[in-house]
Design a protein around this nucleic acid. Sequence first.
DNA 1: CCCAAGTCCTGGTTGC
DNA 2: TGCAACCAGGACTTGG
Length: 288
Amino acid sequence: MPELPEVETVRCQLDLGLTGLTFAAVDKVEPAMMRDCVPEEVEGLLPGHRIERIDRIGKFIIVVLDDDLFLTLHLGMTGQLLIDPVEPGAHTRFVFRLAAEASTGGDGEGRAGARGPGRETLLEFRDMRKFGRFHLTSGGPAPRLRQLGPDAWKGEWDAAYLQHRLRGRSAPLKAFLLDQRHLAGIGNIYADEILWWTGLSPLREAGSLVEDQACCLADEIRTRLSEGVRLLGCSLSDFIDTAGQPGEFQDWLQAYGRQGQDCRRCGGTMTRTVVGGRGTAYCPDCQR
DNA sequence: CCCAAGTCCTGGTTGC
DNA sequence: TGCAACCAGGACTTGG
């Protein structure tokens, strides 16, 4: 289930592999992936446009094209983006064909464009659960991104911001972390991990944190997400990167999925509950 | 049949 | 009383 570190891993690879390339053709588009346009519009609009760069806010990937065009992607729960997949896969939702721009005598500053003309690159999206979405918009990324808080990893926010947002909230702390309007990018796995490292209970009222605890939480959010990015994401179930490779964060989990096992900090028994409608693993002995 | 999950949507509650 | 902010829970999806 792609959260910020998984999406960042993919973004980074897309940026290296696709920047400078131009959309040549839309081979397939699943209509269910789009809420506000139809496949015909994508097929008509996309070809001919060059990828300037790949951005990310929270779990959303933003493909920035020339002429102020934006392709906003969300991987949902089981989405995978593959560049030149070796084998055909099931549940393919879209396939885009890209090519190096026809030579204009320029210096070909695009990194991927350096491969030379004539070579085509395939970008394929696979998604078993059909929670993935994409939007093609002009003038800016998909409007829904305006509802997001700052990026939990790269965004400009600090402990004071977190404390301000926490103030007066009666929702459980974990539900607060999952709410993308406060910080964008934290999902179920990293929420459990962050809370375990802080020693704070997921059930605790968000507004009850004192200053020191809010500072600790802010630090741990950055640290755990950085670890996730460094380890190229968490491949517990279906996450793979654009080359089909898994990440390694799943080998370092301290909380998520560890119910019934010993807490690695205090030796107590990890337990499972439901918070914010999501399965939650934590240690009732040392997470307060 | 229930579980997993991210986001959207709805309906209910709280507090000013 | 009215309104907005807030919060909980269901819908969606399909393989295990």
